[in-house]
Nucleic acid binder design. Structure first.
Lengths: 217, 217, 217, 217
DNA sequence: TATGAATGAGCTTTCATTCAT
DNA sequence: GATGAATGAAAGCTCATTCAT
């Protein structure tokens, strides 16, 4: 079929079997991501993962112990870029609390809407939370808790300085994330069937939250 | 063996089987709910459903066409009580918009936190949204859209009357639902492993939303 | 192929699927015996057992939990006739000790040489003793120990009555079985490649044992 | 990592691998013996053999053609010491026939009970007799037939000289081996679960055989 | 010599589905 | 209506074997 394409694109039977050695595991995990997203954990066949990765079933089992390990490793590996973005956001966050709140919502939105990996991994974690509880905890501790910590501290200081109200919401940073999360759930549920105006939705969320937190008069 | 016992005490053979006829399908759906919750759609075995329902696999196929139909029917049937509660809430909703908002959050919270069926069906719909898109749409049209319509109208009128700000959030009633949804997702993710103070979380949400919507000054 | 044979012999696709219900498990076990004998436990494919039994792999798993259970059940079930023969021998054993010894060797020989089941099960138990130790113990307790008990008692009484010598061999009835066992092992090892004159071998064994046990004048 | 340690201590890279060259095959066969004993032929994984031998699967295939050859070579190689003992026993056998018989039983017993290799190879040959018939024949021709030949001759001469009875057993030297073989089978079957008093058992066997062969009167 | 990544056929086991009763 | 034996198409996983390095 693809025999006559130029050498770069073709992947004949054994020629480059060995050449790609070090990249194989990551290729498998990327293929696994696509299949798990397409079918969910239980309904995904490792054979399809193999085909997509351009290897055979046996190769998967050479690199990974079993299907569960493939899933866990996939989540870990594909989450790393997300972590980098999160880290970067935290380092360059604005000092002003209002701006901070706003940019936080933008960042969270951007993360989940523009990064397909982040979005779909969230779905997979919700779906498979029962099967992989430790993975959920690990993920939460790594990606969510640090940012919540920062938020709690930032909001506390802002309240101290009188820049925002002393609202009970200051203790629940996840409250501020909830519109983004809800938007994401909506996308997962309707994946394109219902048009969602994320931008206006987000602006509305900013409006309510900022007005709700700024000191009255 | 027990064939010759008197008819009353024995729940064994012919009589009982036929007497229970009309309840069978519902018994099967209830059992199916438990198993789907426990394992997810793909990993649930119809045989386990049968055992839990006290029938055999064949009986399930007598009442339902296949596994997919069992799932769809289960979601429909177990959602009916949820719909009744929703209907009732809408009929006795308070007139005052502030009270309405507050009671709406309470209602949504009560629905998802106290009604295990509602909560778990939401999880199942998120997990299986790809496999059952029409079911998601149907569910949304029946249970969510009407209430959103009411909200949109009520908030519009309140803004008209100057009782609340003309916020862009008035067009996104789901924004007001998002804290409850987020809380629910948290429960699904950590199911008991992390203690969640739902009451204080909810109070915080009310505080921010009300303050954010009330006219300033 | 066999389509035109008379109805008795033909086993078309679904016609008599159900008719044979009660005999299925035993048919499977008989087929399993043949395959285990042919290939040993590990190298036997349940698919071949299924084919030989005229069913599909799934049917085996309907009746038996797994491959190990098939093996264990097979040994148990095919050993029953052996147990009946053993029981019968014990009930009609001759009173005279010399005759008893002789008939015992004949019986043991007949059991192992004329009953293919008995012979091959012994081989399987030796081969798989490590994998199925409880089965070995169970088998020994059921088929060997009772007969050894009888022997010990009978020989003890004969010695008491002065009919045979007080040899230390009286405490080891298995010693008297050993020529038969050795003959059996030889058959297992050479299965037909070396001609073995079992009759003369057995007569030789009787000669030595009887001469060795009779009192020296 | 350890590449820069001094050459003596490190047993890591190039040097050592090449230096050990000549011992490799034997190391592999020894490891193979252990694994074949542990799991039987079919259930033994060449990978486990490799791990035990401290090499990789590929190395095995460098030295041996395939799994069958590993088995055959293992049996041959690990049997050599057994052959040496047998040879030595034959060269220093006592002249007196009674003593010879007794020492023969002792020798056979010692061989099988004190030499784990001899004992387990016997088990493996029984188990895999169907798969490796030529190996069984070869083994028998090398280790058993010569000794049987000697026995037949020695017993014949003794009968000629009137030292023992002209029993039909003189033609079946394996009869005299059978108690030892039976003892060995018992050990294989119960491997430690049942205590076996080998010494008394052997004494009993000697008693019966000698009394059975000595001329009456 | 030795390695180890890769293969692919084949194994045990599972399970939605069917159908004679 | 209900049963349960039977099917058969996979699915997860294993492992002897190969081969570029």
């Amino acid at each position: 079929m693809a025999k006559f394409e130029n050498a770069e694109g073709s992947s004949s039977n054994r020629a480059d079997r060995i050449r790609r050695k070090p990249e194989r595991p990551m290729e498998i995990l990327t293929a696994a991501f696509e299949e798990f997203v397409r079918c969910g954990y239980a309904a995904t066949r490792l054979e399809d993962v193999a085909i997509r990765a351009g290897v055979t079933k046996g190769t998967i089992y050479f690199h990974f112990e079993n299907k569960e390990k493939v899933f866990v490793q996939m989540v870990r590996e594909l989450s790393k870029p997300v972590w980098q973005k999160t880290d970067e956001f935290l380092r360059q966050r604005p000092d002003d609390v209002v701006e901070f709140l706003s940019s936080y919502l933008d960042f969270a939105h951007g993360l989940l809407f523009e990064d397909r990996h982040a979005r779909e991994i969230l779905r997979l974690l919700i779906s498979e939370a029962t099967r992989f509880p430790e993975l959920v905890d690990e993920h939460f501790a790594q990606f969510v808790e640090p940012i919540f910590e920062h938020l709690r501290k930032g909001l506390g200081e802002a309240a101290e300085a009188g820049k925002i109200r002393r609202s009970p919401a200051l203790d629940f940073p996840d409250l501020l994330l909830s519109p983004v999360l809800a938007l994401n759930i909506a996308m997962l549920l309707f994946s394109g069937r219902k048009p969602i105006d994320a931008k206006r939705h987000l602006d509305a969320a900013k409006d309510v939250f900022l007005m709700g937190l700024l000191p009255r008069d």
